[in-house]
């Protein structure tokens, strides 16, 4: 694994830019670990026996399901993996959960910049974001918003400390080679 998008070349936040996806095989162990870390111990996520018999209106899941906010968090991770090293900020995310994620599913996130606007020293962007299973089923869809220092982009102001700091951070990450990042 490596820092997605951080190969030493700053990604260009522009319309059409696609965030490098996060892909994760969801297991019961991962769901349990997420329950412990999120302190959300709803039996939806932990009790297979109950889930085999529980009715949810017209829906029956048949097994435990992953937390919707785990998927939401993976999408957020996809965004911060790119935006933080650029000296930017992840500002907002909105997602609807459209299908359950079951143990054994592989979830793959996607994000694409749809709009950009220069606002003073910042470049604010809007992005569409999604998460799908390996068979293409959409499990979450929505949009996100954030910004990066305009100076961090190619052609940015070399005198701006954000540009210098960002390039230094990128160079350090590149020098680390296969650095931290896990999950998939």
């Amino acid at each position: 694994m490596h820092w997605t998008g951080l190969d030493g070349t700053a990604p260009v936040i522009a319309i059409g830019y696609e965030f490098p996806p996060v892909e994760v095989l969801v297991t019961r162990e991962m769901i349990r670990a997420y329950a412990a870390a999120s302190h959300d111990f709803n039996p939806l996520h932990l009790d297979d026996d109950w889930m085999k018999s529980a009715d949810f209106g017209p829906t029956r899941f048949g097994s435990v399901i992953a937390h919707g906010l785990m998927t939401y968090s993976l999408v957020t991770r996809m965004l911060t993996d790119v935006v933080y090293p650029l000296g930017g900020w992840h500002e907002r995310c909105e997602m609807r959960f459209t299908a359950p994620v079951l143990p054994g599913d592989t979830v793959r996130t996607a994000g694409r910049v749809t709009n950009v606007r220069r606002m003073g020293d910042l470049l604010r962007y809007a992005a569409s974001v999604q998460a799908r299973k390996e068979d293409g089923t959409m499990v979450a869809t929505g949009d996100a918003m954030g910004y990066v220092p305009a100076a961090a982009l190619p052609g940015g102001d070399e005198r701006n400390p954000d540009t210098v700091a960002t390039r230094r951070a990128l160079a350090e990450l590149a020098a680390e080679g296969d650095g931290p990042v896990a999950g998939g």
Binding site: A33, M70, L74, P180, V181, A182
Partner: peptide, 24 residues
């Protein structure tokens, strides 16, 4: 850090004091 690990997010801003202190 428990939460970050649970989502596989080992961003140094959450784990590396030196790195984080040099960040914005």
């Amino acid at each position: 850090q428990d939460y970050a690990r649970a989502i596989g997010d080992l961003n140094p801003l959450y784990f590396d004091e030196d790195h984080a202190s040099r960040s914005r």
